[in-house]
Computed example of a mutant assay.
Amino acid sequence: MNPRNRNILIAAIVVIVVVVAGIIGVTSHKKSSANSKTVNIGIMTSTKQDDAIWKVVSKTAKDKYGITLKFTHFTDYTQPNKALQNGSIDLDAFQHYAFLNEWNQANKTDLVSIGDTMISPIHIYSSKYKDVKDIPDNATVAVPNDASNESRALYVLKSAGLIKLDVSGDALATPKDVTENPKHLVIKELDAAQTARALDSVAASVVNFNYATAAKLPENQSIYAEPINKDSAQWINLIAAKKSEKNNKIYKEVVKAYETAATKKAIKEQYPTGGELPAWGLKLK
């Protein structure tokens, strides 16, 4: 073979090898990317109990579905949904249905629930009385002042037999919806974080579980626990996604990794007194 032709042939073979290697490399990278399943979940800065529960969920997600869970922590309830909406995170898990519905209406967003997590019964606490029946006439009762938690607190007062409500449809309850208040209770609206601290200055206070935990309120100061009934559906915590991603296969697998017997066991181990309860599959009456 002519030396010149041989060199041309060799050069052509080298080019082909390089091109083929490049194609294989790109294909391999794409395949690797497709198989790399990492989901970033926005949660509130958590307790060691919550961390232990998410550790169990993360193990299930990795072992059964090949999904790596990463977490972005927030300290302000207004931040996770913003991060979800702008794509900074893939999912969030911090809110209940009432909060999500209120958020969507106020911010013109369409975030949706793709699965349930836990429900945290709230309590009426008092440092002065041992039973809700002991609360005297004209006493002051503190409730959270944000719309969804205030509504929840009013429903708890209703369940405790202290007031009656008349609320239309899915609307949140407000003090204006109180139709009967036989003890003429004064309902004092406070920032949710202040309800526990107000116990010394009020007859009783409706306190969210996380704030009761943070304030280290003793269990014997709880004089009434929120019942789990038909009113509870709106207080179930959830995993949220953008509406456009509600059928995302990987995100559905994250929900499956959460809603397991292993997670249920972890919740019960971490919250033996029922501060948090598994919420998926609850039968509400």
Results as ranks from 00 to 15, higher is better:
42 G>K: 00
217 L>E: 04
253 E>K: 13
122 I>D: 14
112 V>L: 08
225 A>C: 15
218 P>S: 04
17 V>P: 00
259 E>W: 09
196 A>W: 01
178 V>R: 06
149 N>F: 12
215 A>I: 04
145 N>P: 02
95 Q>M: 13
152 R>S: 09
229 N>E: 03
233 A>Y: 08
216 K>R: 09
6 R>G: 14
152 R>A: 07
135 I>S: 04
7 N>Y: 12
203 A>Q: 07
254 V>M: 01
212 A>W: 02
120 S>C: 13
150 E>P: 05
43 I>P: 09
49 Q>W: 04
245 E>H: 14
29 H>D: 15
211 Y>Q: 08
37 K>L: 06
221 Q>P: 14
93 A>N: 14
54 W>S: 07
107 N>L: 04
271 Y>W: 12
192 A>H: 05
255 V>T: 01
279 A>N: 00
192 A>S: 13
260 T>E: 08
162 L>R: 02
118 M>K: 14
93 A>D: 13
180 E>W: 07
67 I>D: 01
223 I>Q: 06
78 T>P: 12
212 A>M: 01
166 D>W: 09
136 P>N: 06
177 D>T: 01
140 T>C: 09
161 G>P: 05
129 Y>A: 00
266 A>W: 00
68 T>S: 11
202 V>D: 06
61 A>G: 05
108 K>I: 05
151 S>V: 00
182 P>W: 07
253 E>A: 13
11 A>Y: 07
240 A>I: 10
69 L>G: 03
80 P>Q: 01
76 D>A: 11
92 D>K: 12
281 G>E: 09
70 K>D: 11
19 V>F: 03
248 N>S: 03
249 K>V: 12
28 S>W: 13
58 S>I: 00
169 G>H: 03
40 N>R: 09
170 D>R: 11
188 K>Y: 10
239 I>R: 05
159 S>V: 13
61 A>E: 00
177 D>Q: 09
2 N>L: 10
207 V>D: 04
78 T>Q: 14
269 E>R: 11
1 M>I: 13
203 A>W: 12
134 D>M: 10
155 Y>N: 08
73 H>I: 15
225 A>H: 15
170 D>I: 13
146 D>Y: 05
252 K>Y: 06
197 R>N: 15
25 G>V: 11
